[in-house]
Design a protein around this nucleic acid. Structure first.
Lengths: 206, 206
DNA sequence: TGCAATACGCAAGTCTCGTATCGTTTCATC
DNA sequence: GATGAAACGATACGAGACTTGCGTATTGCA
């Protein structure tokens, strides 16, 4: 209960366990290692792992989301389309083919583990969602998007296809889909139906 | 090797096992039953289960996707928007709150099992994708969608947000998102936009 | 009628997850 | 110092997934 009472937790054990989890995930995938191996590699007892994280799914999510959680994915580039594109490119890089199986493992592991899902939301989804929300706010401020723009819907439209291609289609995100996402958001919520560069691009060569 | 050699597989055992799996899933959820129970309820030995399906995840996916795999989700309603809306409603109903935990379990079952993922794609994803592709073809035929409509992108835009809300947000599909999906697809690929400035309209005169 | 091949039920054995309990160690507080 | 609370490594445990091996049953073919 009282954190100031009793022996304090071994400093460094948290990070050692997370690192071991990350390494074993990249080396062997979710099913390819046991919690015992995590403990051994981290140099701690098995119980010290379970004292910190209640299950393998939660530990895996914690390990895979513990780095780079504070990045502003949809950073300010001057225009909403720029913010959106650079953010999507960053996500595309993160979900790149090399780590596809890895992220599939993480996503599916969350599905029925409520604690793992909450942690994933906290560490991964929320920062990105907030970053996108800020980009939308800036866009409304600039007059690029309508005031009624529904951030939640934009998030779903932007992130959903990503997830689908990575998990279900098990394929990279193609340029045509990335363009379609950007264009769809601009068409749905663009404040002024003026010619956005997204639509011009498709016509300009002609 | 040769299927005509040796004792043939017990006819009916396949279906009995799948039925038992389905029942136990709906009654107790993925973690709530053992393979032993599946075998007992189906009236077969445990090995007869593993002879047909290599793991519990694969069996569960097989059991949950073995019925209704041939439904034409995006059936012909007379218009593309109708097809799309009725299909989305059907998917929403399938993933509805009552069966949400069930499908979360199925996703979880796929977590560490590539074979289960492949089977899910084969039995669940592919038929829906094909159904949507047929609806798009009809729409192009009717002149509702542009000839260049990219079926793959439409699939991603339609199914992605669904998956995202189900897997990440663990929430129902809101009406506003469903409307946004329909509108986005129509804006992107609608062949004859009325007065709304759609992309195709600006490109087609060339 | 034999024989090879395969499926069958059954049971024993291995592996891993997650829990519980040991004696020990490290801290704050008395 | 002594004490109590909590973390530590180690280990035993129950449960369930999956494997392996046994003896038997059922088929096609020689």
């Amino acid at each position: 209960m009282n954190p100031a009472v009793g022996r304090p937790r071994s400093s460094g054990a948290d990070e050692a366990i997370l690192r071991a989890g990350r390494e074993l995930m990249t080396e062997h995938g979710y099913a390819g290692f046991s919690m015992d191996e995590v403990a051994r590699r981290a140099g701690v007892g098995r119980q010290s792992v379970y004292r910190r994280w209640p299950s393998k799914p939660v530990l895996v999510v914690a390990a895979m989301t513990s780095v780079g959680a504070d990045v502003d994915v949809f950073a300010d580039t001057g225009s909403f389309e720029g913010d959106l594109r650079s953010g999507l490119e960053a996500m595309r890089a993160l979900y790149h083919r090399s780590s596809a199986a890895l992220f599939a493992d993480v996503y599916f592991a969350m599905a029925s583990d409520l604690a793992a899902r909450d942690l994933f939301n906290e560490n991964h989804v929320r920062p990105r969602r907030r970053s996108l929300a800020r980009a939308v706010e800036r866009a409304i401020e600039r007059g690029e998007l309508a005031r009624e723009t529904d951030v939640s819907t934009v998030t779903d439209l932007v992130s959903g296809p990503f997830l689908y291609r990575r998990l279900i289609a098990a394929d990279d995100l193609r340029d045509v889909l990335l363009d379609a996402i950007v264009e769809a958001v601009l068409l749905l919520y663009g404040a002024k139906p003026q010619q956005s560069s997204a639509t011009i691009d498709r016509c300009s060569p002609a």
